[in-house]
């Protein structure tokens, strides 16, 4: 498989997963903000928290200054000027799919293309719900179609690597959003508002139902952290994503010469060590935000190691067979 193709499949996995996550986060936020307004509260803080968790405060501030009245929701979902908006992410995924077309099945390409065509037409005025709902459904369809209609070679493994590294990053950001929503006072910890906010975090990660099944009692920060960071069986938890990443990375690089000594393999081993030793109570005690920051930094290093050490590595002429 061409290095360029492997890299593009990896990025396709990232963009698809990113689109799905942004759609879900925005949807939950939108519902919560409608509720806030209906009950007379201020919904602006919810959007500020989401934008903060996505590390996009500066970009949004600049865009809002240039276009007065630009709502954070529109900027996150529809803005073509925002390279990370849902619409832009869908466009990026589709350009990659077009470049990769001979590595996808007709069915997979058509789903991505249809999503892109509907994104190009999605009107602001109808609200974000129809668009976000179609993104969530279509991404699931694409991932499923890929596994059922495409030759399952190392290309599929690179797509999965992209998907799980993005999911790990996104889940960590969803949990981190709690850090950006301030409680009025320290006494509110464990109170109704606190619980309500954690519930929003669970919804953003499609994890509320899983939480109910896992725990009988109250929604607390420690339990949310345990489920979203460390649960072995919940498919969006950080630990689950890291295990999946390791599995797919090993399969993707099986035939790569000296694959065990690749810098990316080392970064993955470090991530696994971190996750193996972690305990929810200790994490919350010493600082959830700090833990997540460190985790995100490790993912970024892993990404760089894959890009520099694998996709862009110049094969030497002597390695010709």
């Amino acid at each position: 498989m061409l290095s360029r193709v492997a890299e593009n499949l990896y990025w396709l996995g990232r963009y698809l997963e990113r689109a799905e996550n942004v759609a879900r986060m925005a949807e939950v936020n939108y519902n919560a903000s409608v509720e806030q307004r209906a009950t007379g509260g201020d919904d602006a803080e919810l959007w500020t928290a989401l934008i903060g968790a996505l590390d996009a405060e500066e970009e949004y501030a600049a865009a809002a200054a240039a276009t007065p009245g630009l709502s954070p929701g529109d900027w996150l979902i529809f803005s073509e000027a925002n390279p990370n908006s849902l619409r832009s992410t869908v466009s990026l995924a589709r350009s990659l799919a077009r470049e990769l077309r001979e590595h996808l099945s007709r069915e997979v390409f058509e789903e991505i293309n249809l999503l892109y065509l509907s994104a190009a037409r999605a009107p602001h005025t109808a609200g974000m719900r129809p668009f976000t709902a179609s993104v969530k459904r279509t991404v699931a369809a694409i991932v499923g179609l890929f596994d059922n209609t495409v030759l399952l070679n190392e290309g599929r493994e690179w797509l999965r690597c992209g998907l799980f590294i993005e999911r790990a990053d996104m889940t960590s950001r969803i949990v981190d959003a709690k850090y950006f929503i301030l409680l009025p006072s320290p006494e509110d910890i464990g109170g109704t508002l606190d619980t309500y906010q954690w519930m929003g975090i669970l919804r953003s990660a499609s994890a509320l139902e899983a939480f109910r099944k896992r725990y009988r009692g109250a929604i607390t920060g420690v339990r949310v952290a345990e489920l979203l960071l460390l649960d072995d069986d919940f498919p969006r938890s950080l630990r689950f994503c890291v295990s999946a990443l390791i599995r797919h990375f090993e399969r993707a690089t099986e035939a790569t010469p000296r694959h065990q000594s690749l810098p990316a393999a080392r970064e993955l081993a470090l991530l696994q060590l971190d996750m193996g030793a972690a305990e929810a109570e200790a994490i919350v005690e010493t600082g959830l935000h700090e833990f997540l920051d460190l985790f995100q930094a490790r993912l970024a290093r892993l990404h760089d190691a894959m890009t520099e050490g694998i996709f862009l590595a110049v094969p030497t002429a002597t390695s010709a067979r």
Binding site: V5, E102, P257, P315, A317, A320
Partner: peptide, 24 residues
């Protein structure tokens, strides 16, 4: 395979593909 110029390399008058596992 559909390739672009940057995916190919010529060494000693032979053409190779830059595959992820080495030159082919």
């Amino acid at each position: 395979e559909l390739v672009e110029g940057r995916d190919l390399l010529v060494h000693d008058h032979h053409v190779y593909l830059r595959a992820i596992t080495g030159l082919e």
